[in-house]
């Protein structure tokens, strides 16, 4: 019987999160909020394998480069920002 790992966090540049090495499902969307339903952008990730530290970063619409080994998390359709996660260890190289 496989063991899965689920984590949920606010999409925020510079935030350090723990992600599974094998990502199975990623959900991103606005949660909560007032009359306009803007809320906060939340991410939920489910996967298996070892848990490692990643740093959440974002790029805006258009062409961008991201480091090797980065995991695309998803796009905020309201702003066009794409969130991705890079292994924490690349900062120590």
């Amino acid at each position: 019987m496989p063991e899965i790992y689920t984590t949920r966090f606010k999409a925020e540049s510079g935030k350090t999160v723990e992600l599974p090495s094998k990502v199975g499902r990623k959900d991103i969307g606005r949660y909560g909020g007032g009359a306009y339903g803007d809320g906060t952008l939340q991410v939920a990730i489910v996967g298996t394998g070892e848990i490692d530290e990643y740093v959440v970063l974002e790029v805006s619409e258009g062409h961008s480069t991201i480091p090797d080994g980065a995991e695309i998390i998803g796009t905020d359709v309201a702003s066009g920002a794409t969130y991705y996660a890079v292994p924490r260890e690349v900062y120590r190289e």
Partner: peptide
């Protein structure tokens, strides 16, 4: 800005 957060 937030470019300072990138690994490079």
């Amino acid at each position: 800005g937030e470019d300072t957060l990138r690994p490079e």
